[in-house]
Computed example of a mutant assay.
Amino acid sequence: MFGMGKSKAVVGLDIGSSSIKLVELRRVGKELAISKLGMEPLPSEVVVDGAIVDTGQVSNAIAKMFSEKKIKTKQVATAVSGHSVIVKKLSLQPMTDEELGSAIQMEAAQHIPFDIGEVNLDYQVLETPLDSSTMEVLLVAVKKDKILNYTNVVMLAGRTPAIVDIDAFALQNVYEYNYEPAPDATVALLNIGASVMNINIVRGTTPLFTRDVSVGGNQYTDSLQKELDLGFDEAETLKTGTTLPGISEEARLPVLKSVTEIIVLEIQRTFDFFRATSGGEHIQKLYLAGGSAKIYGLAEMLKQELGLAVEQLNPFRRIPYEEEGPVG
């Protein structure tokens, strides 16, 4: 969304609350291939609810990955989400690009709950039926201090921030490239991280509704630690379905289920609101992504409670991995 320069080569950087993920793509003919892939875990409390608290530790982790992977590319693309990010779909009278560029500030002032001077704005004209009397515009606003929070750590690591996207739209890019959706295919993309869940409902390649919810894998870890008197590492192991000596299924499963029910309820509320405000648009399928998407029992409960086909989104469905050696 927020371009900060032009570059043919850009490294993707996902700064999460439990780890940092890195990917460098290369073109092979008309297709993409992965040339570098890495992940560096982060201690708890370094990134909290999408805010980078310890900039030194995060920048050091980024620099370490670039060094270990021998990546020479300087330009970086990253993404943000959370309460400092506002996404609104506007229905406006048809106008030229020049007129829209002049009008967007005024429109933003009416729809953004922040001082316009405190945010970075971007917008995209969406596809609209030819017989429509209005034009649909996707407006995005992010607080400047949120963007600086991320771009500063990139620069401290000796790299140049080229693009700051929105997490939900970054996942949509992955979905579009790998799945080449039909124009009438309406799906929900769920990115479930450690502390934030991004929901993006998409028809074809057009985003219809987005929402960020402050729930994720940390709730499972916290509940397992509290209810079963476990350490952090033990709880992290249990929530993925791996068993531990002395912890029975009868003890573990009810704890996981109670948290899953909370997450499913938030998703159900989001879908109900979307249907009520979109003329009854029908969601056909749900794709799960993110580090917490493979929590034991989550996909099955989503399938049962929502009555939808549920699939783990494969980000490498059309993107071969070419680097030799272990990922990490």
Rank of each mutant, 00 (worst) to 15 (best):
Y150I: 00
G12T: 06
A182N: 11
K74L: 11
E31H: 12
S258H: 04
T73Y: 00
I20K: 02
V47F: 02
I104G: 13
D54E: 09
S7R: 00
H111I: 11
K88S: 01
I34Q: 01
S132R: 09
Q304I: 08
K239G: 00
T55M: 09
E323D: 11
L244K: 03
S223K: 11
E281K: 10
G193M: 07
L100I: 10
T73Q: 03
V76L: 04
I62M: 06
L171H: 09
L230C: 10
G29D: 06
V53S: 07
Q268G: 04
L286E: 01
G117K: 13
R159L: 02
F114T: 12
P161D: 10
A168K: 07
Y175N: 02
K144G: 14
E322Y: 12
A77Y: 01
T151N: 05
E127C: 03
D115G: 08
T221K: 12
M39K: 11
I112F: 04
T160W: 01
K64M: 05
S67K: 13
A185I: 02
L313Y: 07
P94W: 07
E323H: 14
G297W: 00
P326D: 15
E281C: 02
N60S: 14
D233C: 01
V187R: 10
V154Q: 03
R203V: 05
A51F: 08
V80G: 02
E68N: 06
P315F: 09
E300G: 02
T55E: 14
G56F: 07
K74E: 10
Y321H: 09
I34F: 00
A51D: 10
T78N: 01
V202A: 05
T96D: 12
K74W: 01
P161L: 06
D167M: 07
V53F: 05
E323S: 13
Q93N: 12
L37W: 04
L139I: 09
M95Q: 15
V47K: 05
F2D: 09
N191S: 14
N314T: 08
S102C: 02
E261L: 14
Q312T: 11
P181N: 12
A109Y: 13
K285A: 11
D115S: 15
Y175C: 04
N173A: 06
F209R: 02
A289K: 01
E118M: 07
L238M: 07
Q219D: 14
L92I: 15
L313T: 08
I62Q: 05
Y287V: 03
D115E: 15
E127Q: 14
A9C: 00
D212W: 01
P315R: 09
T237I: 13
K69A: 11
K226D: 00
A157I: 05
S84A: 15
N120I: 00
P254S: 04
L121P: 06
Y296R: 11
K143E: 12
V255K: 13
A9K: 02
L265V: 03
T210Y: 04
L22R: 00
I319Y: 06
Q225N: 04
A157K: 05
Q105I: 10
K36W: 00
S91A: 13
